[in-house]
């Protein structure tokens, strides 16, 4: 149970949680549709995950095991603060292991380890409206969603190809959910877009400032937009992870000295540590050639 007194379980009051759950149910029923909800003030600034926190607070139960990641890492400020927030206001168990978690709140990444049925992943979303950059009027974007007038999304991709010779959008890459709504997948790298397609876990998205919730139910089609002659592609690296030797994960570039030295490491810290875990429980350094063996 919670070790804080004076707060309701998971900080929000029960009526607020019911309101958010209703919005979530509607969002699950209409995949990709942005459901407005009466977002509350949370004890952290907008842009730090107020939307994700409210969704998590509405779905979390005493038996849940929570994992919070920020840019793939469990130990960054945002992840640590939010994990501690829920540990203190709910008393639920927390973990850094993707496989052990029942709830994963994330900012900017989907874990490398495939999610399974029964898990819920909650994304923090800064700008829920994928059409926003092309159309500033909200009344108009709502109409465009309603009538499926999505031509302008391709105008943006067209501009990318004209300027860079390829689709240069690398994060928050627009997707079409269940063949109907165009959705902003939150600023995850497009590397993670294919993981959303027919994912066994439930995906929930919360935007606190804009007060919108949307969802992708398990096993729902999620297609990234592209052109016939410029198909969707994910990022690739010439290196493998310098710590665990993984050649198939999303890598962060880390500057290690002031001589121009740098290394590429997995952005998903749990994935990386899991691969390096020796039989005795200590972390090993795997060189890329060892990993290949």
């Amino acid at each position: 149970m919670s070790d804080q007194t004076g707060y309701n379980f998971a900080y929000l009051d029960e009526q607020t949680k019911r309101m958010i759950r209703r919005a979530i149910l509607k969002a699950v029923a209409i995949p990709g549709y942005q459901v407005p909800f009466a977002g509350r003030e949370m004890p952290l600034p907008y842009g730090w995950g107020t939307g994700g926190i409210q969704v998590t607070a509405a779905v979390i139960g005493p038996a849940d095991v929570l994992k919070v990641i920020d840019q793939g890492a469990d130990d960054t400020t945002n992840a640590v603060s939010i994990r501690r927030f829920f540990a203190r206001t709910t008393g639920v168990a927390t973990t850094t292991k993707t496989t052990e978690a029942t709830l994963i709140q994330t900012r900017h990444r989907i874990p490398e380890h495939p999610l399974s049925e029964g898990q819920i992943i909650i994304y923090q979303v800064p700008i829920p409206e994928p059409l926003r950059r092309m159309e500033a009027r909200d009344s108009e974007t709502r109409k465009m969603h309603a009538l499926q007038e999505y031509g302008v999304m391709h105008v943006k991709l067209y501009e990318d190809i004209v300027r860079f010779g390829r689709i240069a959008t690398s994060y928050d890459y627009p997707v079409r959910v269940n063949g109907r709504y165009i959705m902003a997948p939150s600023p995850i790298p497009k590397f993670d877009n294919p993981k959303m397609d027919r994912m066994p876990a439930l995906q929930l998205f919360g935007a606190g400032r804009e007060k919108r919730i949307y969802a992708v139910p398990p096993y729902t089609r999620v297609e990234s937009l592209d052109f016939e002659d410029h198909p969707f592609e994910v990022q690739r690296w010439e290196q493998a992870c310098a710590l665990c030797g993984a050649a198939d994960s999303y890598l962060d570039e880390v500057v290690v000295d002031d001589q121009g030295g740098r290394m590429f490491v997995c952005s998903d810290t749990d994935h990386c540590a899991g691969r390096r875990q020796g039989a005795d429980g200590t972390l090993q350094l795997l060189l890329p050639k060892d990993a290949a063996q």
């Binding site: 031509g151 302008v152 391709h154 016939e228």
Partner: peptide, 11 residues
């Protein structure tokens, strides 16, 4: 834009 709006998807 109009071409893309009516479903043209070939750059």
């Amino acid at each position: 834009e109009r071409l893309m709006a009516v479903g043209d998807r070939h750059f």
